[in-house]
Write a protein that binds this DNA or RNA. Sequence first.
DNA 1: TCCTTATAACTGACCAGTCAGTCAGTTGTT
DNA 2: AACAACTGACTGACTGGTCAGTTATAAGGA
Lengths: 198, 198
Amino acid sequence: MSPKPDVSEERKEQITEAATKVFAEQGFDKARMDDIATEANLSKGTLYLYFKSKDAIIKHLLDKLFEREFADLQSLTDDPRPASEKLITFSETMITEMQTWTRLIPIMYEFLGRLFRQSVVQKAFKKYMRFYLDLITPVIQQGIDEGEFKAGNAEDVAITIGAIFEGTILLWVYDSEMIDLEKHLSSGMKLLMDGLKA
Amino acid sequence: MSPKPDVSEERKEQITEAATKVFAEQGFDKARMDDIATEANLSKGTLYLYFKSKDAIIKHLLDKLFEREFADLQSLTDDPRPASEKLITFSETMITEMQTWTRLIPIMYEFLGRLFRQSVVQKAFKKYMRFYLDLITPVIQQGIDEGEFKAGNAEDVAITIGAIFEGTILLWVYDSEMIDLEKHLSSGMKLLMDGLKA
DNA sequence: TCCTTATAACTGACCAGTCAGTCAGTTGTT
DNA sequence: AACAACTGACTGACTGGTCAGTTATAAGGA
């Protein structure tokens, strides 16, 4: 038995939370390890007990964000309803999910902008895209097969849907006065589905 | 009269070009002023004769990019054709224009990701969005008024078009194997216009 | 209950590398 | 001679990461 309880999970959580706050306020560049340490009520040295480097903290944050987005969508696969209804559910789920971590989205974009050169990040993104397309493409295909949607390439449609989501978020990140995230995601999705109908 | 011809425009151009190349290869952070100087066949000191700082070079680059995208689209305003044709022209112009500076798009995104916190950049982006919406919204409205498009909020539609463009580009930046920029921009635009038709 | 001890947890001064920006000096042209 | 153009060694500020030393706590013994 060790003379002290293992606090490493607790500390990692504590550091991650502090890092999120500091990164959100200062951006990745300006944020110093000392800032994160102060925010976490720890010393800089302690940070290095739990994370190998600054980049490791950033990567950990990314993983958590992706993981979170994956989780709520899996259910769609076995849903027996018509394609159009499933797409609406998908869209609503995404919008709701998004609202819960609004504050983190800008960080995510900064992160992607900063690290897209790194293959780790590119791989994570590709994996995310693959997951998304494998989820949505079959739904579109189902719609086409059942005569609900007009004929066409299902994956191209899925990509356009993805683009509408990513694009609306991007516009919103830069101009949140002009863009109402929920409203414009809905109206974009609706417009697209009108175009899909047979 | 000065004893030598003024070379400052030439130098600025030379430095901008070198900086573009270095930034594209290394990213903004890793790129050192010495790298840019070497690439431009100048010394670091000379860089500072023509640009106040590294940030000034980056800002100059951004200005050039925005300027370039603005230029080719102005003509649309006085175009007498039906809305749907104008939208197609718009889309084709954007795609063509994009192809000429493909190499710079990732820089642009890195730039936006990095600096969205800075009000100068946010203002530039808002100005760009305003320009874009003021160009496209009236075209949509025209289509609605002339009965070509179904009724709805013209600006919302314009925003969705913008989102499709920005989103497709974003996906392409991260996964250029999966996304064919020209093909997916076209198919997205087509899908949306089908949804628009009255 | 108190003391000893092992060791996990933690600290923060320090190191080493980096790099934007400066400036005293050089070059070349008129 | 005059002056614009240019150079590159140097400086100063910064910060990610290290590590020798300190503190706190549980376990075991008296």
